[in-house]
Amino acid sequence: MTAERDHLEMAFHSITCFADDGRLDAAELDRIVAIAERDGTINEDETRVLHNIIARITPGEIDALMKMRLDALRRKIGPPAEPAA
């Protein structure tokens, strides 16, 4: 896919990961982040998709490895954008 559509590929991949067993593990998150990073940057659409994915992760899915991955990802992409008023 092209960089303009990577966010769609990321969203689709996350759906299949969550649908598989209802959870997202660190390896699956790494694969989704790799899609965003393969062109060298994480753009606004990819950031939005990553924030949506993070929001769907439940506390029970966060083991030590997942916490480390999420912390690193949050440092890269920053906090979610505030909704428009």
Score class of each variant (00 low, 15 high):
2 T>H: 15
4 E>W: 15
6 D>E: 13
8 L>H: 10
8 L>E: 12
8 L>Y: 07
9 E>T: 09
12 F>L: 10
17 C>M: 10
18 F>Y: 14
20 D>P: 01
21 D>H: 11
22 G>I: 13
22 G>L: 13
22 G>Q: 15
23 R>N: 09
24 L>D: 08
25 D>Q: 15
26 A>V: 07
26 A>L: 04
27 A>K: 11
28 E>L: 02
28 E>K: 01
28 E>P: 00
29 L>T: 01
29 L>P: 00
31 R>F: 09
32 I>T: 04
35 I>Q: 03
36 A>V: 11
36 A>T: 02
37 E>F: 06
37 E>T: 03
37 E>Y: 09
40 G>D: 03
40 G>I: 06
42 I>N: 05
42 I>K: 06
43 N>T: 04
43 N>C: 13
43 N>F: 12
43 N>S: 07
44 E>C: 11
45 D>C: 03
46 E>F: 09
46 E>N: 08
47 T>Y: 02
48 R>N: 14
48 R>G: 11
49 V>D: 04
49 V>H: 05
50 L>D: 10
50 L>G: 01
51 H>K: 01
53 I>T: 00
54 I>A: 09
55 A>M: 01
55 A>S: 07
57 I>A: 06
58 T>L: 15
60 G>N: 15
61 E>C: 07
62 I>C: 02
62 I>W: 06
63 D>A: 12
63 D>S: 08
64 A>Y: 10
65 L>P: 01
65 L>M: 09
65 L>R: 14
66 M>W: 15
66 M>S: 12
68 M>P: 02
68 M>N: 06
69 R>Y: 07
70 L>V: 03
70 L>W: 01
71 D>V: 08
71 D>N: 05
71 D>T: 08
72 A>N: 00
73 L>D: 10
76 K>N: 14
76 K>C: 01
77 I>A: 11
77 I>W: 14
79 P>L: 11
80 P>L: 01
82 E>D: 12
83 P>L: 06
83 P>M: 14
83 P>S: 03
84 A>C: 06
85 A>M: 10
